[in-house]
Design a binder for these strands. Structure first.
Lengths: 189, 189
DNA sequence: TAGATGACCGAAATGGTTTTCTGGTCATTT
DNA sequence: AAATGACCAGAAAACCATTTCGGTCATCTA
């Protein structure tokens, strides 16, 4: 049996269920049916193991976002679909959700770092799409990194923060229309 | 001597210097040269005293923002000036800065609430300016509340969060140009 | 003998207990 | 009538004994 794979699966399950802090190496070892020391022959330490797992999650997320994109669709349609998918992933996917909570509640440095890496991945993903649509001639030539950052922060604000100050969350259609009328509209050639 | 005023000044100084949590009623009384009980003849409790002080701060901030606005200037120029002034205030003004820190570090409910109220004040201020410029016919008819919220969150993101992930903060001119090319551009008639 | 293991270590976290602090009250004073 | 500060109960802090946990390494096993 592939011991490394067993360990990765066990660790993924435990991190997703309990978070980084509350997962112990001994627990992972037990779930993986492996001695604790064995983990250290495959992974330098707990943090590196965690990084590997989060990075795998980032790949899955990017895959889902890619699947949400349709070749023929407009930039606005695709950007909206991809961002919504990734922000949905952020709330739905056990591991991602746990990381977000843990960063808020405990500020574990390892978690903070991987959360940043995940968000950076989203921004970069969007940036690449922008560059593609600029090359296609559908979008004006703008600083794609800034626009990607703006889109991410803006979507996050309307989807995550809005109902902190307002008692009902905005319907997705309203968000889509609003962004069409503001940001997206200004990006078209 | 006006005892209420003395108390307010003492409390303002203490809240600004040490924050809400670390300020004690006894300390305020001592600074104000007043018995502790006297405070309670003017203010229902610590929270209410704090609210009054923060609300006064909000007024000052709105005044500064108003001063930054020029009657003849474009919406973009005025919105930028006002937002920058208020976000600068957020970092410069002792009390505001302390509140932001304390909300992050301790999550005192009273502080959280007043921080929300302050941010809401900024959004409302911007919303009113938008409405004015819409009435003037300089801006398209859009949902001013959503736009105000977007502008606030976007400016906050670029001025406060940007250098968390990037090692140098964006120059103000670059921010101004960027928002001109994205959000503001889309708001014009 | 190479890879796996778990007892072991020091540092950090936890939890329970005692002590101090502080918001708010109110009997007394001015 | 207004001001005061001793006082109270509950919250927070300080303290410390005990446990937990990441990581190591001498031993084991296949």
């Amino acid at each position: 049996m592939d011991r490394k794979k067993e360990i990765l699966e066990a660790a993924t399950r435990s991190f997703s269920l309990f978070g980084y802090k509350a997962t112990t190496m001994e627990q992972i070892a037990k779930i993986a049916n492996v001695g604790k020391g064995t983990i250290y022959t495959f992974f330098e330490n707990k943090e590196v193991l965690f990084q590997e797992i989060v990075r795998k999650m980032i790949c899955e997320m990017k895959q889902e976002a890619t699947d949400a994109i349709q070749e023929g669709a407009s930039f606005q349609e695709n950007a909206h679909a991809a961002l919504m998918k990734m922000l949905e992933f952020r709330e739905t996917h056990q591991l991602y959700a746990k990381i977000v909570d843990e960063e808020k509640d405990w500020r574990t440095p390892a978690v903070k770092q991987m959360l940043h890496e995940t968000e950076q991945a989203i921004v970069t993903f969007i940036k690449e799409k922008i560059d593609k649509y600029v090359a296609k001639g559908e979008l004006r030539q703008i600083n794609s990194e800034l626009v990607a950052y703006l889109l991410f922060k803006a979507y996050l604000a309307f989807i995550n923060d809005w109902n902190v100050t307002h008692d009902e969350s905005l319907p997705e259609v309203e968000i889509a229309n609003f962004f069409q009328e503001t940001i997206f509209r200004s990006l078209l050639v």
